[in-house]
Design a protein around this nucleic acid. Structure first.
Lengths: 225, 225
DNA sequence: TTTTAAATGATAGTAATACTATTATTAATA
DNA sequence: TATTAATAATAGTATTACTATCATTTAAAA
């Protein structure tokens, strides 16, 4: 039996469901590769279409514009990650162990997951690090938020917030700490590799150090009575 | 006697020094207003020129492109903030009090500072929150970094890192904690106002709550022996 | 199997963006 | 007063970010 992981996406993110056709899957696959390679700013639907071997208009039939595509990819990633988390913390009872696992999952470059053939999760992880915040740092956040484009991110944040409260029921800032962990897992990675003097990991450039830092940050905060 | 604060800017950031002429100062002033109003994505030199009453080519004589202008503005802000910090923590001896003051300065919307007539610091603060990370989240980080465009940010981070070590000499992650404080001061503010469920401050939307969160985060981390 | 519909490919076109270049004019300086 | 430097005015180009049209292929329904 072959299981296929399907992440249910918000329908307002696309014009035609990219998961429903070969062209659509190609758009997802190649957009991940192209954004990874050139960065979101120089990424265009024209270049994407050339890569795929279709036309610009072909891409526009699936996504209204490249912003929506980026939001789609980030939403997909957060959905995927929440599944990974629930999968890997499934039978763990100790909330501390659970939260540690989450931090590790957040801060670890994923290996390409075979189950979703058309999205390379390891490239997508790098995109999330470098471009992820551009999905919401716009003038349209409010509208986008009204259309629930950021629900997967918020859901993940809520899940982590709940774990934090399980560890330390009296802790006052579970949600802010959750978003801090998420953002910092990525920012510290970006800094480590690009602006190393903003971190303490410039020498080794090891993800494990980011994990150690976040663990220290979180669990000293929570261990306080 | 009238003192004028002059922040020494990296010369590679501009083609002609905008502080050296009326037109240049107008470019700074109106770009802050326009980026604040429309967001960095829809900000163009054409619109800016119209606002000022000059031509597109006129703006291009000062800045190579809008990315350089954004980097200029963020660098200016970090320079300005470092001055504010050294000014306001000048005669404070207790490193804990000092660090608290820094957190407050980072997380507090500034009032427009009269001393620099051509830049509205309160608008610039909002720009830093919403657009600041776009200055380095690009494919050109490496080149930009080689040209020392991010020095003011790094310097500030180093200053805060030093304060952290003064508070707790054995703390292992002073620089990462410093960059975390800086980024989270802004991200929590953005989230609070735009994606409130990612924070614990959605009800009141008070900066003071962000400050309390950051103080808790930092000082439980540092109080650990 | 034919009909019909849906998706794609091919091509064209437009307004805006991100620039560069040229020349005339004005202002500041030697 | 002559010279230089900055600006204004105008034009032009390649690319981006789309929209529109129509013919063709593919797939599903009758």
């Amino acid at each position: 039996m072959k299981l296929q992981l399907q992440i249910k996406m918000n329908e307002a993110l696309f014009l035609r469901n990219p998961e429903s056709s070969e062209l659509g899957k190609n758009i997802l696959k190649h957009s991940v590769q192209l954004i990874y390679k050139t960065g979101f700013e120089s990424f265009t639907f024209k270049k994407l279409a050339e890569d795929i071997g279709t036309t610009e208009a072909g891409v526009y039939r699936y996504f209204e514009n490249k912003h929506k595509l980026l939001v789609y990819l980030t939403a997909w990633y957060w959905g995927w990650l929440e599944f990974q988390i629930s999968f890997h913390t499934n039978n763990i009872k100790d909330p501390t162990v659970k939260l540690k696992k989450v931090i590790k999952l957040l801060a670890t470059a994923v290996e390409d997951d075979v189950q979703t053939s058309y999205i390379d999760e390891s490239l997508l992880y790098q995109i999330i690090i470098a471009e992820g915040s551009k999905a919401y740092l716009t003038k349209q956040v409010e509208e986008d938020n009204k259309q629930h484009f950021f629900k997967p991110y918020k859901d993940l944040c809520a899940v982590i917030g709940t774990m934090i409260l399980e560890c330390s029921p009296k802790y006052k800032y579970p949600k802010s700490l959750a978003s801090t962990i998420i953002e910092m897992a990525h920012f510290q990675n970006f800094f480590m590799n690009n602006l190393p003097s903003l971190t303490d990991f410039g020498k080794t450039k090891e993800e494990s150090e980011i994990i150690a830092f976040l663990n220290d940050l979180v669990f000293t905060s929570l261990k306080k009575t």
